[in-house]
Amino acid sequence: MSIAAEHRPAAGPARMRTAIRPARTCRRGGKPIRGFRGKRSKQKTSKRGRSGMSTGDQRREDGPRADSAAAEAARPRAVDFARGTNQSGVRLYNERLVLSLIRRHETLPKAEIARLTGLSAQTITIIMRQLETDGLVVKRSRQRGRVGQPSVPFALNPDGALSLGVKIGRRSADFVLIDFVGGVRHALHEIFAYPTPSGILDFVSRGLARVAADLDPAAAARISGLGIAAPFELWNWEEQTGAPRRVLDQWRTFDVRGEIARLCPWPVFFCNDATAACGAELFLGNRGHHLDYLYF
């Protein structure tokens, strides 16, 4: 028999008591080893939770609730395009969503952006740091006088991105350079009796030359592309413009997007003029923030 001493707390002064426990023996190489203690056998006792029910009873009790929660999670839900996602594969989508919200509200702090998008505060911090590094957003002065810590709102940087636009109309054409918030930096306007392919190319060439002369290399590197807004099927305008049929027929085989793309190093996009006007009204002219409106 071996004697082992152990300390136990007591209500009064600490005292030591002696517990006599039998020591097990184990043989190694044919010789007994004193003091070796083997693994204690696990007692099969039912675990009780805070409510006093065993684990099995708790599972049986939570069965209907778990089934109801699973059914609710599997139920199809409508997609909310105003909410972001924390998946790494949609980083660009989240950045566009954040930029759209800032454009809509003009200035937003990170806490409000996280609330509107449903993204975590850490994700928003990473996105805003990247957008600020890219020069697309800037910090405004710290807002004080409110509950909690002063917040720092973010706004779009007007110099963050530039874009070119060409409008081809029945009686005139426009060439513009706009900044990231819709401000017009350069504009060129020309009036004619009717549009011709050669005249439009010459007009765009003069506009590009003017922009290249006025912008420094750093600003020119911020140009993201050129957009063309024009009506479809210009060759059907004979009655409206009074242009000769032979002139209008040139538009049938003229690739306006492809020919203008030869003149500039940036991506070129073509859009119907009415569709482009609605898009511009939605992003830049819709100050009332209406979701539905009629454009004339």
Results as ranks from 00 to 15, higher is better:
F269M: 11
V184W: 01
W266L: 04
F203D: 00
Q240Y: 09
A276Q: 04
P244K: 08
G285V: 09
I178Q: 07
L291N: 15
P217G: 05
Q240A: 15
K167V: 08
A187F: 10
R245N: 08
R206W: 01
V268C: 06
G242F: 06
P195G: 09
R170S: 13
S172K: 12
G288M: 06
P231T: 03
T241R: 03
L215Y: 05
H290G: 12
A212W: 02
D202I: 05
G242A: 04
E238D: 11
D216H: 08
P195I: 02
E239D: 15
E259Y: 05
F254M: 10
L263T: 04
P195Q: 04
R262A: 12
W266Q: 08
N272A: 06
V256T: 11
L208R: 00
D214N: 12
E233I: 11
P195C: 05
A277L: 07
W266N: 04
A173Q: 09
C264Q: 08
I260P: 01
A277D: 10
L263P: 02
A219D: 10
P217M: 07
P195E: 04
R210T: 14
F192M: 09
I223L: 06
F192E: 02
Y293S: 09
G207N: 00
H189N: 11
E259W: 06
T275L: 14
K167A: 14
V256L: 12
G227H: 01
L226F: 05
L282E: 10
